[in-house]
Nucleic acid binder design. Structure first.
Lengths: 138, 138
DNA sequence: CCGCTCGTCTGGAACTATTCTAAATCTCGT
DNA sequence: ACGAGATTTAGAATAGTTCCAGACGAGCGG
């Protein structure tokens, strides 16, 4: 799943972000996994590669990537925020049993075609967090 | 929206929880508002009534009420968990602009009638968090 | 109604996730 | 290559939550 650094740098530039080593490293790591790592996971994984990345930088980078739309952050009820480089629309299934976060293929549950709720409020995105039980646990 | 304490005590007893002053106070407060207060909001509101409730107790009580199914906790991306005594099924609209959490009338978006996702994973609850913009901000 | 037991409450310390700060460093347009 | 301004860094600070050990009190049996 390793994406070459040049493509990643291109992504960063395309969004008007300066290309820095921490940003490339974080983006490469997030793009390489389908788990939904926490900030701490990101820091650990990158520092395991010999690089040194401070905790504060992990957050800085995650924030700038999020603002640029290159990664998406999500919060689960217990503990730390989780990040995800798959920004194509999809949903998340939060497993009640093991706490794992699994991706759910995107489907329009009948909301987006309207873009508004029946009472008129607008829904801008369709990133839903479903509460359920994953295959491993069922 | 004030519900008399006797009904609340009955609710607690029905769930096998001991009836204590903090529990009644927290439950009464949550039942009286359609905002989605944080633990701190709960503490502030109750202590404003002359009672004294420690921070730890607020969490104790919220946890026991949640375990008993009398209130539901939810986490939003930024900041503190929020609680809600309206446990009838409904969704939440998280406003991107002002951060407010609004209730959305329950609707089966075509998921529950199956109870499973197309790929077979089961979905246990339908408490969805929608990402959008509330009426006040639109 | 009384006393006992165990669940609950309390204040404070501890812990975890995140943000802030101020200085050093680096990117990139010129 | 230079300089302006963005980014990184380590460490301190903050916010939200949990843990702890002791005091308290709800509700059972008598």
């Amino acid at each position: 799943m390793r994406i070459d650094d040049e493509s990643l740098k291109g992504l960063l530039r395309a969004r008007g972000l300066r290309v820095t080593e921490p940003r490339v490293a974080v983006l490469a790591y997030l793009a390489s996994t389908d788990r939904h790592p926490t900030a701490e996971d990101v820091e650990t994984a990158i520092n395991a590669n010999g690089q040194v990345l401070s905790r504060a930088s992990v957050y800085n980078v995650l924030h700038s990537l999020t603002r640029a739309g290159l990664v998406a952050g999500m919060s689960v009820t217990d503990g730390a925020a989780r990040y995800d480089a798959h920004v194509a629309p999809h949903h998340h299934l939060l497993c009640r049993t093991c706490g794992r976060v699994e991706d759910v293929p995107w489907q329009d549950f009948g909301i987006a075609e309207r873009g508004v709720l029946p009472d008129g409020r607008s829904v801008r995105t369709l990133a839903l967090t479903l509460d359920g039980v994953c295959n491993a646990c069922c």
